[in-house]
Amino acid sequence: MEIQMWQIIALTILSMILIWDSLSTAIFDGKPMFAGILAGIIMGDITTGLAVGATLQLMVLGVGTYGGSSMPDYLTGAIVGTVFAVTSGQGVEFGIGLAVPVGLLMVNLDVLARFCNVFFAKRVEAAIDRMDYKAIARNTWLGMVPWGLSRALPVFIMLIFGEDIVNALVNYMPDWLTGGLRVAGGLLPAVGIAILLRYLPVKKYISFLLLGFFAAAYLSVPMVGIAIFGVAMAVLEFKKSINGNQVAVAANAGDSQEGLLDGEYED
């Protein structure tokens, strides 16, 4: 299927709205899960968008942008990956195979946007010296421009010129690459899980890691069932922490805080 001009424009606007949302209201929180679904709606194939977004989401579990660190931009990756999975007819694995390198490259533009905003911040400070409130407001909001362009430009360019490249890729792609990408699509969520385990205080809660695995692998309990079990245990833990005597609470809090700091994973 060929992509229409209105779809390219809609997807470009989508990428801008998603990055702005992630900086402010955060209802889509810049997550590839939502980017994939929304791109899927625009492309008329929610199923593909859902699958591409879901796999990318699993890869970024636990990867956050703390203190201004950049992470692979799977938001843009999910949009581009979904589009080419649909237009090429090559399926979800192909889309993920494209989304990963796109996401890894796009991180450079995230850095550039954060860098460009130094310029507007300087202008805000200059406006304070003049006590020019209009200029303070204007330059604060101009910060949206580098952010928006850092996503919109690459999405627009890739969608306009990408189709021929992707078609050529599809025609000449050898079996070892298509098959390899399929295997990679299955294995890549392991990276997100491993990053999370590095961040969370696994040693303290190792029994729950094993219980979760046991319930899913041996008892085939579906994910919602496991979440219910987890909530039950979490409520007990919460009550224990709150109702326990003050000393216990303090010791507990100190523990968990320490564990999180020790296990903190930085990219």
């Binding site: 699993l58 579990l61 969520p189 392991a190 899980i193 999370l196 385990l197 969370l200 205080p201 696994v202 809660y205 729950f208 890691l209 094993l210 219980l211 979760g212 695995f213 046991f214 319930a215 899913a216 692998a217 309990v221 994910m223 496991i226 979440a227 079990f229 987890g230 909530v231 245990m233 979490a234 409520v235 833990e237 919460f238 922490s241 709150i242 609470v249 507990n252 809090a253 968990s256 805080q257 999180l260």
Partner: peptide
């Protein structure tokens, strides 16, 4: 802190299940 501890426990349980699913 209590909420963080509880959510951590829940998160780790879910992650354990994720490995296999």
């Amino acid at each position: 802190d209590a909420l963080t501890a509880a959510a951590t426990l829940l998160g780790i349980t879910v992650v354990g299940a994720l490995v296999s699913t």
